[in-house]
Amino acid sequence: MRRGKASVLLRVACLLACLSMALAGAAPTLQPQQEARAHHLAQSLRCPVCQNQTVAESNAPLAQDLREQIQAQVAAGRSDEEVRAFMVSRYGDFVLYEPRATAQTWLLWLGPFMLLGGGALVLGARVRRAARAELSADAGRSGEEVA
């Protein structure tokens, strides 16, 4: 008899442990305004695995974890910037769909145009130099013919 009660108690304890673990991992329930904020944040972050999808769009397991993390942080009262800063600290600037304006990002955006402008300046200088050389050669030839 004792053995049967112990077995039932052990099964109930295991069931309660599994239930508490499942509830601990569940995403917090959010109010509609918080849910909208969490969704907006998930749309502004890139899935580190999928690369071309937002966290909100991706079906990857990591994206699901990130959505739950975002919801937990919104439920905890963190601001949008605090949530983004947390994600950047974990995954780097790559996770942001709209990268921050830093010297490195400005160089990435403006670098090709600066190289193109520099190439145009070099090309223009060479064309002018060649034109001057041709004019001076023409002037030398016309002077020789007269003399």
Rank of each mutant, 00 (worst) to 15 (best):
V8F: 03
L9F: 04
R11T: 09
V12H: 03
A13G: 12
C14P: 01
L15V: 06
L19C: 10
S20T: 13
A22I: 02
L23K: 14
T29P: 11
T29D: 14
Q31H: 03
Q33A: 07
A36I: 09
A38T: 06
H39K: 13
H40R: 12
L41M: 11
A42C: 11
S44C: 07
L45S: 02
C47L: 05
P48T: 06
C50F: 01
Q51F: 00
Q51I: 09
N52S: 14
N52C: 09
V55L: 03
V55E: 05
E57C: 06
L66M: 15
L66H: 04
R67Q: 13
E68Q: 14
Q69A: 13
I70S: 00
I70T: 02
Q71G: 01
Q73R: 11
V74D: 01
A75M: 06
R78A: 05
S79C: 08
S79K: 09
D80V: 02
D80H: 02
E81M: 10
E81Y: 00
F86V: 09
F86D: 07
R90E: 13
G92K: 00
F94W: 03
L96K: 07
L96H: 03
E98F: 03
E98S: 14
P99F: 00
R100V: 14
R100I: 15
Q104D: 12
Q104K: 15
T105D: 05
L108S: 13
L108P: 04
L110Q: 08
P112R: 07
F113D: 04
F113V: 11
M114V: 15
M114H: 11
G117D: 11
G119N: 05
L121Q: 07
G124C: 05
A125W: 05
R126G: 14
R126E: 10
R128C: 15
A130L: 12
L135H: 03
S136W: 00
A137S: 12
D138Q: 15
D138K: 15
S142C: 08
